[in-house]
Design a protein around this nucleic acid. Structure first.
Length: 112
DNA sequence: TGGCTGACTTTCG
DNA sequence: ACGAAAGCCAGCC
C-alpha cells in the first residue's frame, strides 16, 4: 500500500486525518491546500475511495455551506451526523451548526 | 485514445 | 433572493 501510487488521494487522506475532533472542513479548502482548487469535486471523489478507510474521518468533511452532502455515501445516511454529534459538533437538518467557528482550514491551521 | 462522471464552488440570469 | 450553467482535475470504461 504505497502512498506513492496516488499522491492526490493520499494527500486528501492525510489532511482529513489531521482534522481535530470537534472540527470540520470543506472540500474546497482541501482542494486548495493540495493545489487542485478547481477540482473540489475530486476531493469528494477521493473520499469516495477513502470511505473504505476507517482512518479517514470523512464525516468531518462537508461542503462549503457546512451541509453533510456526502452523508448518503456512508454505510448509513445517519452515520455522518451521529459521528459529528459524538465529536461534539451540533448538527441540525444535516447541517453543521456554527460551522463558521468549527471550520478547520488546513491552509490556516497547518499554517502554510 | 477519447470521453463521461463526480461527496464542489463560483458566477451570471 | 433564487435558479441554472460553467469550470475544474483526475479516475474509469
Amino acid at each position: 500500500m504505497a502512498k506513492d501510487h496516488s499522491n492526490f488521494f493520499n494527500d486528501v487522506y492525510e489532511v482529513v486525518r489531521l482534522i481535530p475532533s470537534g472540527r470540520a472542513t470543506n472540500y474546497g479548502a482541501i482542494a486548495n491546500y493540495l493545489g487542485t482548487k478547481g477540482s473540489a469535486r475530486m476531493v469528494g471523489w477521493a473520499m469516495n475511495a477513502a470511505h473504505g478507510m476507517a482512518d479517514v474521518p470523512a464525516h468531518r468533511v462537508v461542503n462549503r455551506a457546512g451541509v453533510l452532502t456526502g452523508k448518503s455515501h456512508f454505510e448509513t445516511p445517519t452515520i455522518m451526523q451521529e459521528r459529528l454529534e459524538a465529536e461534539g459538533v451540533e448538527v441540525v437538518n444535516d447541517k453543521i451548526k456554527n460551522f463558521d467557528k468549527i471550520f478547520w482550514d488546513p491552509n490556516t491551521e497547518l499554517a502554510l
